[in-house]
Nucleic acid binder design. Structure first.
Length: 258
DNA sequence: AAGTTGTTCAACCGCCCCGCC
DNA sequence: CGGCGGGGCGGTTGAACAACT
């Protein structure tokens, strides 16, 4: 007999969370803290398993989450950290306040991986790939219909110009690739590791409501954090979902930029 | 306008680690 | 010391949306 599942899945809801469920979970956690994920759904009146609640809180509801695209600096930092730590997304994410491991992992898989391949760097080993392989990888990252070009068809750069409106001559491509290689080669792994060690020591991103409310040794800073959460709860009393916030953000963007 | 293909990301699954008994 | 249970983590999936034909 195998191990019992983490929770009884019969009658439990799965799939996307509704605004109402978000609201229930967030209210419960902010009022009671996190003692045991397994008991939270029952106490909060949710038909979800504890793991699902935990994931939703960590990846979406936490008040300290930072939303939106990662900056280029953050992206480069991720590449550097990945070179040192590998696929340890939680470790990597711990260096980015307000970012989740899931977010970093998704960002890596959908964007950075491709960018590295195009630039001739193996995303797994971070080693430079031989020029011949580079061109193969560039083709790999292209849509099927473009990568399988008959000999009479235009060459890759011409296709880039035609298909994507990118004006890159073969010389410019080489320069770009060389620049990226230089950047990678100049990476000072030792100083980076020191930096990582320093950051780890000074910053503890795994914020927990339970910790801040129950641990008297945490002191003034967590008290401030607790206060800010309280303020945040009050200001979002109507329980707007993050989607609604995002929509507002979009509209503000268009408003500002005409 | 409709169908197809590609991309993104929230959510799930299952394994592993660690603390408790 | 070993078993158990909970939490954490990384890999994977699939729905929703965007872009293209």
């Amino acid at each position: 007999m195998g191990r019992q599942p983490c929770c009884d899945k019969v009658g439990l809801k799965r799939g996307p969370w509704t605004t109402e469920e978000d609201s229930k979970l967030m209210n419960f956690i902010l009022e009671n803290g996190i003692q045991c994920w397994r008991t939270i759904p029952k106490l909060a009146g949710l038909l979800r398993c504890g793991k699902s609640c935990r994931l939703r809180w960590i990846n979406y509801l936490r008040p300290d989450l930072k939303r939106g695209m990662l900056s280029e600096t953050e992206e480069n930092q991720i590449i550097q950290l990945h070179a040192c730590l590998g696929n340890r997304w939680a470790k990597i994410a711990s260096h980015f306040p307000g970012r989740t491991d899931n977010e970093i992992k998704n960002y890596w898989n959908t964007r950075i991986k491709k960018r590295l391949k195009v630039n001739g760097v193996d995303p797994v080993t971070h080693q430079h790939i031989e020029p011949k392989e580079k061109s193969e990888l560039i083709l790999e990252t292209m849509p099927e219909s473009i990568s399988h070009i008959p000999e009479t068809e235009p060459k890759t750069n011409e296709i880039n110009e035609m298909q994507y409106g990118i004006d890159i001559s073969s010389d410019e491509t080489t320069i770009l690739l060389n620049n990226y290689e230089m950047m990678c080669e100049s990476l000072d792994v030792v100083s980076l590791m020191n930096q990582v060690a320093k950051t780890s020591a000074s910053y503890s991103p795994s914020f927990s409501v339970e910790e801040s409310s129950s641990n008297p040794s945490i002191g003034k800073s967590s008290c401030t954090q607790g206060d800010s959460i309280q303020q945040w709860v009050q200001s979002t009393h109507s329980m707007l979902s993050w989607d609604a916030f995002n929509q507002l953000e979009k509209e503000l963007f268009y408003f500002r930029n005409g």
